[in-house]
Simulated scan of single mutants.
Amino acid sequence: MTRRQRVEGAAMSGDPYKGAIVKLMREFSHSHNPSTVFSDFVEICALAISNRVDTLQVEPREKRYLEIVAKYKTEEVQRFAAMFAQLQLCYRERVEMLGDPGIGDVHDSGLGDVLGELFMALELSNDRAGQFFTPHSISMLMAMMTVGDGASIREQGFVTMQEPACGAGGMVVAAAQAMHHAGLNYPETLHATCVDVDPCCVHMAYVQLSLLGIPAIVVHGNTISLKVWNVWYTPAHVFVGWGLRLRRRRDARADTAATVSDDGEAQERDDLHPAQAPVASTIPASSESCMVNGDAACGCFDDVGAGDVTVALEESHIGKAVASAVSIVDLFEESTVGASSMKPDRTIFDAIEQMTLF
């Protein structure tokens, strides 16, 4: 048995679905680089999920999908589909094994970081700048210590999590599992904003969080420079209506931060709330029902057609409105430029918070 086979066998840990994915991956080895195959696989999965929920990005992402599959034969594309099916089955079984929130013990594997484990088992880290992902057991230990019995989260209603270098999203998965064992329903009580500079990591994180029903915004960007290249919204972010929930909390905090000047006029702290009034833009989509919950409660305006997506944006501090941007990436570009030029200590998460999409 070779060293690689020993590493792969240890990573599989008796999981038939992970074993099936590795076996299918090996069938590409004669004609394609394994690192490229894995990257293309997770990107195809991400594109397939995104195009079901993010109507604003369908055209460019469908074009990107066609670019990827053009490199492969028909039977190889079908192999990708089989790998995706195995990944979905793997996570469906793991979610079912968790049971209801607050019931059962914390298992070593639990939800797990399946794609991160596969990435390490296939020894792809050596091909990608020496990347190494935190073992799930360590992530779980950190998450359990942070979440505790979940009392503080219950008091707040929900918590938001920010990951500046998310990797495959393992820490977010661990946080969701820890909240589940604390008796919390994580699709309703946890929202994550994840950033990574590596597109492969972004796609891995997006796929895993999507399949596990974790509400999240996954950003391909540079946390240090605030550069943003792409933005991905998990289905749970859309269907549970997290855009509206996050906007309401932001507005509530802005109201709390308001101070009264000497002449009695209310003023806002500009580090917590933009100085300009919000600009609303409605972008039509081709769907039969609202993408969040099908009624006015989702935050869509009454005069917007069914399936339309309402995008509420704040103008930047330099007075440059971002509502005229033509894509989600443009919106983030405008927001990050405005934030970084006025406040050097602002982060990429501040820029993301300025916008509420879906």
Rank of each mutant, 00 (worst) to 15 (best):
81 A>L: 12
223 T>S: 15
339 A>R: 10
72 Y>E: 03
345 D>W: 07
6 R>G: 02
115 L>H: 02
274 P>G: 11
233 Y>Q: 13
2 T>R: 07
186 Y>C: 04
147 V>P: 03
96 E>I: 02
67 E>P: 03
166 C>Y: 01
225 S>R: 11
185 N>L: 12
61 R>M: 14
344 P>E: 12
344 P>H: 10
349 F>M: 02
273 H>W: 11
1 M>N: 07
110 G>R: 08
192 A>R: 02
147 V>W: 04
102 G>L: 06
325 A>F: 01
102 G>M: 06
224 I>E: 13
140 M>T: 08
310 T>D: 10
231 V>L: 13
251 D>P: 00
179 M>N: 06
265 E>Q: 12
93 E>A: 15
213 G>K: 02
317 H>A: 15
170 G>T: 11
273 H>D: 04
262 D>M: 12
144 M>L: 15
144 M>V: 13
99 G>N: 09
65 Y>P: 01
100 D>R: 14
224 I>F: 13
357 L>E: 03
333 E>K: 14
62 E>M: 11
123 E>R: 11
71 K>M: 07
272 L>S: 01
195 V>K: 05
261 S>H: 08
84 F>N: 06
46 A>W: 05
84 F>H: 10
253 R>L: 14
258 A>Y: 00
235 P>K: 01
92 R>Q: 13
344 P>F: 10
287 S>M: 14
338 G>T: 08
52 R>G: 15
247 R>D: 14
297 A>P: 01
45 C>P: 00
154 R>S: 12
